[in-house]
Write a protein that binds this DNA or RNA. Structure first.
Length: 587
DNA sequence: GCCGTTTTCGGCCCGACTGTTTTCAGTCG
């Protein structure tokens, strides 16, 4: 059993306990353990198998260790099954809606007999919900809006989740009889921010039947939805649907291209082929024989002129290989034809992370630990950007604590060789656009990030003005997670991104591409626009623990989807260039 | 439910905001 499955199960248990009204600290204990477990790179199943003491993991005690062991060994959790006999598990889905928490979910169930999102929607529409004490017209409206959003994003997995969930199946398929290689295609290969399913390709020149049996026989399979000779489909226990196609070498590149998509990109490529008398399909590139009747076109009729590799497919239509991340039919075919494909930024180009939290606010590790983790990545610098004081829950910094933190950073900078910690803050943009920190404090910092964490329901006009006002403060360098969205959870707040980008250009402010897989904010489209406008983009992880620094790759993927090149991204610059840029605004 | 002692029970981050209230519960971060 995967770590993600274990944490997902424990999370469901915690959610149900909360709806039940259990001791809040007990629930917190579960959540803290989930948080810790989510950051553990090693498979818990291995630790169980080798008899390691799981209670050695901080926040994991006797009971949670036993739960993990039970899950690994039996695939089930008795206490969750007992609990769900009393409380419908579907209530958990209600708490995913904005404005509905455990208490309201419980009341909806007990007082309206509503236990599913569908039933809640009916109750909202026929007036029963508004009649319930504590609910009014506005909350009904908010709930309906949230249901609508959930409906459009339902069944989609975060890119990071799909990466994790598919890995064991790929390893499994690499051991299938006669399989020479296995590749990911589809939206996962294109690194889309969320994926609905995963497409796998397997290269096999021998008998395919045992390969398909190997696939459907994988231990993580919940159900098999399709099992033919060349194509199979399963749903994993995690809910992730996976398609497999088995192909011979002569078609493999064509299939990889075809199943990588996007659909729109494929249409563009096929159209190019048609003009040159070519038929391009997942089986290969074929020269159409004009003497052959239309209905005599078998899948492999005509002269095969390519298909072993993707390069052959592109070459057949006179193009260089196009990176999967930009195969969106957003100009890449034309750019390829004209020899002006971008040289996309790479993870190795990144030289620092300038949005990192520490235990001074809501981070989980000290500044030194975070800095050492950055050094291990080969970075030259890191900015500590703890929260400002209005983020009370996050233990935000007062001006006094900012000064105290500066002394700690000075000390560390004196000790860390070849690395620099920048004194910085993530300052909240208040309702009126002023900043949650006096200017004289900001003036003493190396770097100032500003962001919105409250009052996200403002009108577009108000929110845009609020952010613009914040950017006008000459101490501000970077606008973090500019739209506030959380994938599959919360829509972006209403803000005119174009106006903000224009202002950023005028004022010399950079915009962040927040690399957290849950945010990836700005979007590919908006970062591309930023680069087009000449607004520097900075890719940051917003790390609250060392392992979050690994999310940089997700930010880079997103940047690549937005066509960004190294020069477009601020934190590809050296420390000297970076400090020159940060001191420029104040000058 | 976990942790750390005060060694076996008490403490565990809490302020802002919303929508509904008329004094506050619930949600969010």
């Amino acid at each position: 059993m995967e770590n993600l499955e274990i944490t997902t199960t424990l999370r469901e248990l915690a959610d149900l306990l909360e709806i039940q009204g259990a001791n809040p600290f007990r629930i917190r204990a579960y959540r803290q353990a989930i948080q810790t477990l989510a950051g553990i790179g090693r498979p818990l199943a291995d630790m169980v198998a080798s008899g390691e003491d799981l209670t050695a993991i901080p926040t994991v005690g006797k009971d949670i260790a036993a739960a993990i062991t039970e899950l690994v060994e039996t695939g089930r959790l008795q206490r969750l099954e007992d609990l769900s006999a009393d409380i419908p598990r579907t209530l958990v889905a209600l708490t995913r809606l904005e404005g509905v928490g455990p208490k309201k979910a419980r009341r909806l169930w007990q007082e309206l007999d509503v236990s599913t999102v569908e039933a809640l929607e009916s109750a909202a529409r026929d007036g029963r919900l508004a009649a319930l004490e504590g609910f009014g017209a506005r909350s009904v409206e908010k709930i309906l809006r949230s249901i609508e959003l959930q409906r459009t994003s339902i069944g989609r997995f975060l890119l990071s989740e799909a990466d994790t969930l598919i890995r064991p199946l790929i390893e499994h398929m690499r051991k299938a009889p006669g399989v020479e290689r296995v590749d990911v295609a589809g939206s996962l290969r294109r690194r889309r921010e969320t994926v609905g399913d995963v497409d796998l390709l397997a290269l096999c020149e021998s008998d395919w039947i045992p390969v398909m049996a190997h696939f459907t026989g994988f231990s993580g399979v919940d159900r098999v939805t399709l099992s033919g000779e060349t194509r199979g489909a399963v749903v994993l226990r995690s809910g992730l649907p996976v398609d497999l196609r088995i192909l011979p070498a002569r078609s493999y590149g064509a299939a990889l291209h075809y199943f990588t998509g996007s659909k729109e990109h494929n249409v563009a490529i096929r159209t190019l082929g048609v003009r040159q008398g070519l038929r391009i399909s997942e089986y290969g590139v074929f020269r159409v024989d004009p003497d052959t009747d239309e209905d005599e076109h078998g899948v492999e009729s005509g002269e095969r002129i390519g298909g072993r590799t993707e390069e052959e497919v592109f070459e057949a239509v006179g193009l260089p290989w196009i990176p999967p991340v930009i195969r969106q039919n957003r100009g890449e075919v034309e750019a390829a034809r004209e020899g002006r494909l971008p040289t996309l930024i790479e993870l190795e180009d990144i030289r620092g992370d300038v949005h990192v939290h520490s235990t001074w606010s809501d981070g989980r590790r000290s500044i030194e630990e975070m800095a050492r983790a950055c050094m291990q990545k080969g970075y030259e610098y890191m900015a500590v950007t703890d929260h400002s004081q209005i983020m009370a829950m996050a233990n935000g910094l007062t001006p006094e604590r900012v000064r105290a933190q500066a002394r700690e950073i000075d000390d560390l900078n004196g000790r860390l060789d070849g690395f620099r910690i920048l004194k910085a803050l993530e300052v909240d943009i208040l309702r009126d656009g002023t900043l949650d920190m006096p200017d004289d404090v900001l003036e003493g910092l190396d770097l100032v990030i500003v962001s919105v964490h409250s009052l996200m329901d403002m009108s577009k006009k108000e929110m845009t003005e609020r952010i613009l006002k914040a950017l006008l403060n000459p101490n501000v360098h970077i606008l973090a997670h500019p739209t506030g969205r959380k994938l599959n959870r919360r829509p972006p707040y209403a803000v005119d991104v174009e106006v903000v980008l224009q202002a950023a250009r005028e004022l010399g402010v950079a915009v962040e591409l927040n690399a957290s897989p849950r945010r990836l904010d700005l979007s590919d489209v908006h970062v591309r626009r930023a680069a087009e406008l000449g607004v520097p983009v900075v890719i940051n992880t917003d790390a609250h623990a060392p392992q979050h620094l690994d999310n940089m790759g997700y930010g880079v993927d997103q940047a690549r989807r937005g066509w960004l090149q190294r020069a477009d991204v601020l934190n590809t610059r050296s420390l000297d260039e970076m400090t020159r840029w940060t001191s420029r605004r104040a000058a």
